[in-house]
């Protein structure tokens, strides 16, 4: 290969190294940032590899396609015009051009990737990376102080829309036992008179009947069936239900 063409190829390689370093640092920052966010939500941090690797590939491809001698020219102003002139006359065999190539090869020996790196930018990125790594190391502490957010989406939808088919199934953590829930549906037969006169009249009739037939007289509302045992058990059931409600709340 012609020495000057080999020089341009080597210079491009040097710029590629610098671009690679910048791309690596940027994708590392993105990786750590994503890892922090995923860690806060209790998700696997390895998922953050996906965006960081994609970014790495994209940045590397972009720097490769946009790679120009301008990067070297900006960092090495002394050889800027020599490089530009040599590039425009790569195929010339003129005596002066050959002399230019000789001088350029001599000057270009001083150019290596170290001269092309923006050290301030690299230092800044490394600092950011270290800070993010520090935050990531303390993120488990942050994680425990955050309330656990469990979002059952189907229940949430039913709660919001109250759609049929979304009735509460047996879930004692919220609604309690089903046996307790049926308490309120028990029917009580209640006979009520419209006034005292009827009551009196009824009493009177009963008295009359009693007097007549010695029929026991009881006035007032009569439950379907006076069941004291059932009442006690109902009371116990109600008590248990209330207790459970208190516990849940």
């Amino acid at each position: 290969m012609h020495p000057i063409k080999r020089l341009f190829w080597e210079l491009k390689l040097e710029t590629l190294k610098v671009s690679g370093l910048n791309a690596l640092l940027n994708s590392a920052i993105i990786f750590v940032l994503c890892a922090i966010i995923l860690n806060l939500f209790g998700m696997n941090v390895m998922w953050s590899l996906i965006p960081s690797l994609l970014l790495l590939a994209f940045l590397f491809y972009r720097s490769y396609t946009q790679m120009k001698l301008q990067v070297i020219e900006e960092k090495n102003p002394r050889v800027k015009e020599m490089l530009r002139t040599a590039k425009d006359h790569q195929n010339s065999k003129s005596v002066m051009v050959q002399a230019l190539f000789r001088d350029l090869l001599r000057e270009a020996r001083k150019i290596y990737s170290g001269t092309l790196i923006d050290y301030r930018q690299v230092l800044w990125k490394v600092t950011v990376l270290l800070l993010l790594s520090l935050i990531m190391s303390v993120s488990p502490v942050l994680k425990t102080s955050l309330p656990e957010i469990s979002i059952p989406l189907s229940r949430l939808h039913g709660f919001i829309t109250n759609a049929p088919g979304n009735e509460m199934v047996d879930d004692s953590s919220i609604f309690g036992e089903q046996t307790i829930a049926v308490l309120g549906t028990e029917e009580i037969d209640l006979l009520l008179g419209t006034g005292f006169e009827e009551l009196d009249e009824m009493r009177d009739k009963d008295e009359l009947n009693l007097n007549k037939n010695s029929y026991p007289v009881e006035v007032g509302a009569v439950g379907g069936e006076a069941n004291i045992e059932k009442a006690i058990s109902d009371q116990a059931l109600a008590r248990t239900y209330n207790t459970r409600l208190i516990e849940i709340s």
Partner: peptide, 11 residues
């Protein structure tokens, strides 16, 4: 002759 052969960049 060398003066005329001296290279100059396109820009």
């Amino acid at each position: 002759i060398l003066t005329r052969e001296l290279p100059i960049a396109e820009d």
